[in-house]
């Protein structure tokens, strides 16, 4: 059984009459040592999914449905007290903007040691030593000095490393990374991804990677779930998805990546329009207004997740795309290098 098993997770915002479903029946599994990607554009429900799993959504005006079994217990029905004990020790999260995720008035060291004290009961010198080890482990040079520094004195990459150190301080079994590289520049992005990959490989931590960056997915994830308007529209292992994206949305996402080897002057290929809720999933396919392949059939009821081509490759589309995308320039050099590459799913 998977470490985390999300089954028909639904998150509804707003009360009677004005309810809107941010997450609409999302299901996926994350195994120990596995990296699962949750991909989609802004507003598709990625971050809400992660906050729901962590129990960090406000209690007022939010309704949760479905199950999210973590090691056999449903996270969604847990009390806030139980969840608080789980957070940081069993589950941890890395946020998008490292500067705003660190307390600006307290040195890094205090922020790291307070987690050690909270979950591992370490105090004083022991906690300080362990904090220095943690910073060292995430690749921060001169950790004892850094412990005394304030967040604004660190570079963006260092801050994200410090946040990762805090998240892995108590060796959580599941790590949720919500766009951990979006606020960083490209060279730092690669280092941070490398660090996350090493943590997963060495500790067997399960990683739920939330991103809109297909480069990140290509470099890191074993299994990929593409979200659109709160529903999983395509789910496959990384190689399968990049080789044969079948949902027009996933197809469009891959095609919209700018390519260096494209002929000069060739226009980029964006997906038309933007996400909107004019068509609810109940009436048909929510992607239909933006889809190049849509037929009248698309507007009759919610399309089901099917496996039209390969086992384990689920697509929510009545008219899936069959032609592959050329992904020659997609950067996947480390696919074979990782221990987990292609072995899961």
């Amino acid at each position: 059984m998977a470490l985390l098993s999300v089954d028909e997770l639904t998150v509804t915002f707003g009360g009677r009459g004005r309810a809107s479903k941010a997450v609409d029946g999302v299901s996926f599994d994350v195994d120990q040592g596995q990296v699962v990607g949750l991909v989609g554009e802004s507003g598709c429900g990625k971050s809400v999914t992660s906050l729901a799993l962590m129990g960090l959504l406000p209690s007022k005006g939010v309704e949760l449905g479905g199950r999210a079994d973590f090691d056999g217990t449903n996270l969604l029905t847990m009390s806030q007290r139980e969840l608080r004990d789980m957070r940081g020790s069993q589950l941890a999260m890395i946020f998008q903007d490292p500067l705003s995720s660190l307390n600006p008035v307290v040195p890094i060291g205090v922020q790291v040691t307070e987690i050690l004290q909270r979950h591992r009961g370490l105090k004083g010198e022991a906690a300080r030593k362990e904090a220095a080890h943690l910073l060292d482990r995430v690749g921060i040079p001169d950790p004892t000095r850094r412990l005394k520094e304030y967040p604004h004195q660190l570079s963006g990459g260092m801050r994200q490393r410090a946040l990762i150190a805090m998240a892995v301080a108590c060796a959580p079994r599941l790590l949720i990374a919500d766009e951990p590289t979006t606020a960083l520049d490209v060279t730092i992005q690669a280092q941070i991804l490398e660090l996350l990959k090493e943590l997963v490989d060495e500790e067997g931590t399960a990683l739920l990677m939330i991103t809109h960056d297909l480069g990140v997915v290509a470099g890191l994830c074993d299994q990929v779930n593409v979200l659109y308007a709160g529903k999983v529209v395509e789910s496959a292992d990384r190689h399968e998805l990049f080789a044969h994206p079948m949902h027009p949305y996933a197809h469009g996402l891959l095609e919209s990546i700018p390519r260096l080897d494209a002929p000069r002057g060739e226009p980029l290929k964006p997906i038309r329009g933007s996400i909107n809720d004019r068509i609810a999933w109940a009436d048909g396919c929510a992607f239909a207004p933006r889809c190049d392949y849509y037929t009248m059939e698309c507007l009759t009821g919610t399309p089901a997740l099917t496996e039209p081509a390969a086992a384990g490759h689920q697509v929510r589309c009545v008219n899936p795309v069959r032609e592959p995308v050329e992904i020659a320039t997609l950067d996947t050099p480390d696919v074979t290098a990782t221990a987990h590459g292609g072995t899961s799913a």
């Binding site: 960090l56 608080r84 789980m86 940081g88 999260m93 946020f95 995720s101 909270r118 946040l163 998240a167």
Partner: peptide
């Protein structure tokens, strides 16, 4: 939010 995500009281 980050502090809450780490289970701080």
């Amino acid at each position: 939010l980050a502090a809450r995500s780490l289970g701080i009281r």
